[in-house]
Design a protein around this nucleic acid. Structure first.
Lengths: 157, 157
DNA sequence: CTAAAATCAATGACATATCATTGATTACAC
DNA sequence: GTGTAATCAATGATATGTCATTGATTTTAG
């Protein structure tokens, strides 16, 4: 098999299997992986408008109306109209949302911990660099770059 | 940002961006990336039952009833009952399906060709090796391993 | 042989993902 | 200031993905 083809399918496979594992870890919280990403983004950068959340998400490009809508219904996110621009909404975490975000952090750290020994001695830096080439300048790459850049600024990040 | 967390999001991002690019390339054929994977699997290994197709797919675990169902409706796949086991269906490509599969091969090769210079000199082998560790023994890893193993056997692969 | 277990495909239920359109609101060109 | 363009959120439409259940069929244990 062509190595690039193999790489293509392996990236899909790794994404799916990682997602399956993480989904399992999130089950006690009753949250999906996408929902957990939204909670983490809001925890670090709230308040945000819908479009700003979208610009920070890797899991979904465009405006995550329905994803956020379900989380508002679930009492995780508070949504009000922006005082300065009535086109925008102001999204922030509820108490429940903040609690969940903190628990997600723990779960993530546990998840990363299980992966650490496997990655030991591997050229992780090179791999990160290689993947960055594929996403740089594209929506998901911009989202991730924005999150990395914002990390220093925020009080919660 | 934790390198493992960065890697996690980069894999998701690379998968999404690659999929977006490939989707664009498939647009002239009116096919989705999942549909193209089914066509390629059937082209190489037909006839297959629904569950056998599922075991060879990375894009979807379990039995891809609805994915295949839409392709039968679209005239890409022929579906009949298995003569030996009436629980099973026999899936094979129609003329249209076979034509599409051949065109997909060309598009894939073009796609891989555009990636070749970018990956030149990069630790692609290391990345492939690392990703294999993540998926080995899991459904998508088994699917990919099966496809690699079957490559020598089949007349079409 | 026959009852229980296993297999297979279809389908219900739910949550994404993606693209396009719509309607309200704001920014901007002049 | 006003008409036009741009922005924002919501929603329709379509196709995935995932898990669970169901009903038909086959296998298997005895």
């Amino acid at each position: 098999m062509n190595p690039i083809e193999e790489l293509r399918y392996l990236i899909l496979a790794a994404q799916r299997e990682g997602s399956r594992t993480f989904t399992e870890l999130l089950k006690p919280l009753g949250l999906t992986t996408s929902q957990s990403e939204v909670l983490r983004v809001l925890y670090d950068h709230e308040p945000l408008s819908l479009i700003e959340v979208g610009q920070l998400l890797v899991c979904e490009t465009g405006s995550p109306s329905r994803l956020v809508g379900r989380m508002v219904e679930a009492g995780l996110i508070e949504q009000r109209q922006s005082p300065v621009d009535s086109r925008k909404v102001q999204l922030s975490l509820t108490e429940k949302g903040r609690d969940s975000a903190i628990k997600i952090k723990d779960i993530e750290n546990h998840f990363y911990g299980t992966l650490t020994p496997i990655l030991e001695g591997r050229p992780v830096k090179d791999l990160i660099e290689l993947l960055w080439i594929q996403v740089k300048g594209k929506p998901t790459g911009k989202a991730l770059a924005l999150r990395k850049a914002k990390q220093g600024e925020s009080s919660n990040a």
